[in-house]
Design a protein around this nucleic acid. Sequence first.
DNA 1: CACTGGAAAATGCCGC
DNA 2: GCGGCATTTTCCAGTG
Lengths: 78, 78, 78, 78
Amino acid sequence: MTTIAADQLRQFVEQIERLEEEKTELAAQIRDIYLHAKSSGFDAKALRQIIRIRKMDQHEVDELDSLVDLYKQALGML
Amino acid sequence: MTTIAADQLRQFVEQIERLEEEKTELAAQIRDIYLHAKSSGFDAKALRQIIRIRKMDQHEVDELDSLVDLYKQALGML
Amino acid sequence: MTTIAADQLRQFVEQIERLEEEKTELAAQIRDIYLHAKSSGFDAKALRQIIRIRKMDQHEVDELDSLVDLYKQALGML
Amino acid sequence: MTTIAADQLRQFVEQIERLEEEKTELAAQIRDIYLHAKSSGFDAKALRQIIRIRKMDQHEVDELDSLVDLYKQALGML
DNA sequence: CACTGGAAAATGCCGC
DNA sequence: GCGGCATTTTCCAGTG
């Protein structure tokens, strides 16, 4: 491997590592908020579900829900 | 480490590996079923959700659902 | 949903649930062994590490290794 | 739910969503770098491996290593 | 466009 | 009983 390639590789590695560090930091902040929410009396599991639902397109949500309901019906779960 | 300890360790390792192998095999079978279900026209995501719901105690389900609804209401998502 | 489809769905669900039950049982057995190992004086964390290392398909690992070594060299990690 | 609690909930949700957005953005940047690396002739898989290896806190790894080596020896893996 | 593999999220266990 | 860690599951991008 040429020196040039090695330097280039090093650049890539360092850039990635820097960004991943930031990403890890953000993840930690998010965990903290869930902890705060929890100690404010909110249920973490339900909160996560809310976040998930809001992230999904409304159409997707509806589609999945109606399928789940259909399956529940077929299984006598309703 | 004595020979006895080494033998004991080996026993543990082999037992664990054997069980994990079986576990892996089961996981593969489960994946297969999801594949069959899919090729029979069922939606894998919805199916997984059904399995999850059935695994939960009914009381838990209700509790989580009502919390999620409460949160949705608080956030004007309804 | 037709009766046929409903029956088919039920089949899938029941098969999956049965297999998952077995999987859970195996997981419990594995936990037990770790507990036994621990009470025989072995360090569970190290033991898990051993299992992990042995699990890696050595061949596949080696495949990447030459490339990885090249890059590590370039990064002064050797 | 009181107005206060609802407001608090909204705060948590918005904070989480904002941080997750940033995290997604970082992930996109990282993907870009891998793409650049790839078009510079580097193997993405090996590159990821490098990143993974470097991420392991070398110190912590060493901590376990003596125990692991002991066990490997016992298992004839050395 | 389905599959594979790898990253991220979520769940559950063990320790304190 | 809670927090941290490890595993497991889910999701998603890359690939053929």
